[in-house]
Design a protein around this nucleic acid. Structure first.
Length: 489
RNA sequence: GGUACCGUGGCCGAGUGGUUAGGCGGAGGUCUGCAAAACCUUAGACAGCGGUUCGAAUCCGCUCGGUACCUCCA
């Protein structure tokens, strides 16, 4: 690869040169959604952030296997009195089979992802499809002596592990604090230490989702699925593991401990964490009750929203911030993203009509290089976008004949624009184009009539045509080279 | 309390020891029958207080404010 890509590695808290374990292949695992409710804006962040990573790695020539799981089993809900499976609870409330709920929300998640133009991962494994492997891994950890069984449940022995390894490498947690700073919580008495975590949990009678294991009828512990599915599809050691910053501890820390205990190897070379989307400065989360679903954004049906926002507006809004920064949502911010996106995409169309000259007044090759530099610097999409807006300025200036561009540079600019706007940022044009020949022909005739009226200074007629067209969402723009039309939402 | 981190102009957001981020909005202008679009110019910032330095928004310390995690939610 001629591109020197630097990735911020949470493990070292530094930007590191990206060198895959087995080039040109790259293995990437990202924690996917728990499918017990509709996806909200908070879900869009990691999906889009790692879609960008996936797209860029492919663009610069890597063969990427991207695994993003669907979590559909066995986890407890914090507001439940007794430990109760999130999905099981939802199922009981709606009188549905748990897997019916899973299917429903998985489908809706996929629909949202398609709307956001998020590429499907290479493999999208479900936790419920890997119960056997999770039992196997728990056995391995037991055999290695890093876990113990109590009352049909299996717990990871964090204290034992930390004697020879560092439980806290990733999160920077101080081990002594972990085992001393504890709270009184229910269901802790089975554990030897409060910091220990479950590998297998015996099911209570009210649990609907349950599987047979050597220890009890129950369900796998919280962190095991990711360790298992990452290992199964990407190997004991793979390149990139991603997820939200909120998963750093204890989830990812525990994943490392499980993999090291079972396989004796550090599982991941580069850990990447995206930051949160905030609403009035607070993390947006379902459990916090301030989540706005993606569906709501697309339809505008939410008290917090002044209007609807298209999927591409949401995508552009997210890409305008660096993935490791918090991003504060507001109507004003989304509206400015909407306008900025339109400006960018319009320039893309203008580019097709631009005419080349003998030489260029702007340095197009430098612009292209800057775009790569931005992406190579830990996927800095906001800086990339600022360079693309420089491209927009050039395109419009050339169109207005205030600047010129050579034929060679024009090709470079077109390729750069196409590569970065569509392939890498994954934006797409949502505007309903005229498209069909009938509309084109009709508009051509109408515009000719209007032009004749204007030539005769019959502005009453020309304005009437324009105003009437506005009513059916057709916008006329008069330029020096004639009139243009487009269909707006 | 512990861990990680943040505080940038009206809004959203890059940057990070010396030089323009960018978008939206504002002001002025060019173009135009008008409108729109486009282009040009422009105003406005680095929470506060100290320190290091020839020079700090950028490094260090303190103060204030904020966020995430520390939960059998993954």
């Amino acid at each position: 690869m001629q591109n020197k890509l630097y990735i911020y590695n949470t493990l070292s808290r530094k930007k590191e040169l990206f060198e895959p374990i087995n080039p040109p292949f790259v293995g990437m695992y990202v924690c996917g959604p728990t499918v017990y409710g509709d996806a909200h804006l908070g879900h869009a962040r990691p999906a889009i952030a790692f879609d960008l990573v996936f797209r860029y790695l492919q663009h610069i020539g890597y063969k990427v296997r991207y695994v993003r799981n669907i979590t559909d089993v066995g986890h407890l809900e914090n507001d439940a009195d007794e430990g109760e499976d999130k999905i099981a609870k939802k199922a009981r409330l709606e009188q549905l089979e748990p897997m019916e709920v899973v299917q429903y929300y998985t489908d809706r998640f996929h629909t949202n992802m398609n709307q956001l133009n998020v590429k499907s991962p290479s493999i999208e494994p479900r936790a419920s499809g890997h119960i056997i492997e999770q039992i196997e891994m728990a056995k391995k950890i037991l055999d290695a002596g890093y876990a113990y069984e109590t009352e049909g449940s299996v717990y990871f022995d964090v204290v034992k592990y930390n004697q020879s390894h560092n439980y806290g490498v990733l999160s920077g947690r101080v081990f002594e604090d972990l085992i001393t700073t504890t709270r009184e919580l229910e269901g802790q008495e089975e554990k030897q230490n409060p910091a220990d975590f479950a590998l297998w949990k015996k099911a209570q009678p009210e649990h609907i989702m349950r599987w047979t294991s050597p220890w009890s009828i129950g369900f796998p512990g919280w962190h095991l699925e990711c360790s298992v599915m990452g290992t199964k599809y990407l190997g004991e050691q793979f390149d990139i593991h991603g997820g939200g910053m909120d998963l750093l501890f204890p989830h990812h820390e525990s994943e490392i401990a499980q993999s090291v205990a079972a396989n004796g190897k550090q599982p991941v070379k580069y850990w990447m964490h995206n930051n949160m989307i905030t609403l009035n400065g607070k993390k947006m989360g379902k459990s916090l009750g301030n989540a706005v679903s993606l569906e709501d954004f697309f339809t505008g049906e939410n008290k917090l929203l002044q209007q609807s926002y298209s999927p591409m507006t949401i995508r552009f809004f997210i890409l305008q911030a660096h993935y490791r920064s918090t991003l504060d949502f507001s109507n004003e911010a989304l509206q400015s993203a909407e306008k900025g996106l339109k400006k960018l995409l319009t320039a893309g169309h203008t580019l097709d009509k631009v005419v080349a000259s003998d030489k260029s007044t702007s340095n197009i090759k430098e612009l292209r290089d800057k775009c790569y530099e931005a992406m190579n610097d830990d996927f800095n999409s906001p800086v990339l976008i600022s360079h693309l807006f420089e491209g927009v300025r050039i395109i419009n200036s050339v169109k207005d004949k205030k600047e010129t561009i050579s034929a060679e540079d024009l090709e470079i600019l077109k390729k750069t624009f196409h590569d970065f706007v569509f392939d890498i940022l994954g934006l797409r044009d949502e505007e309903t184009k005229g498209g069909n020949e009938l509309a084109d022909d009709l508009m051509k005739t109408i515009l000719e009539i209007r032009q004749q009226a204007r030539a005769k200074k019959d502005f009453a007629t020309s304005d009437k045509i324009r105003d009437e067209l506005v009513r059916i969402n057709i916008i006329i723009k008069d330029t020096k080279d004639g009139s243009e039309w487009s269909i707006e939402e």
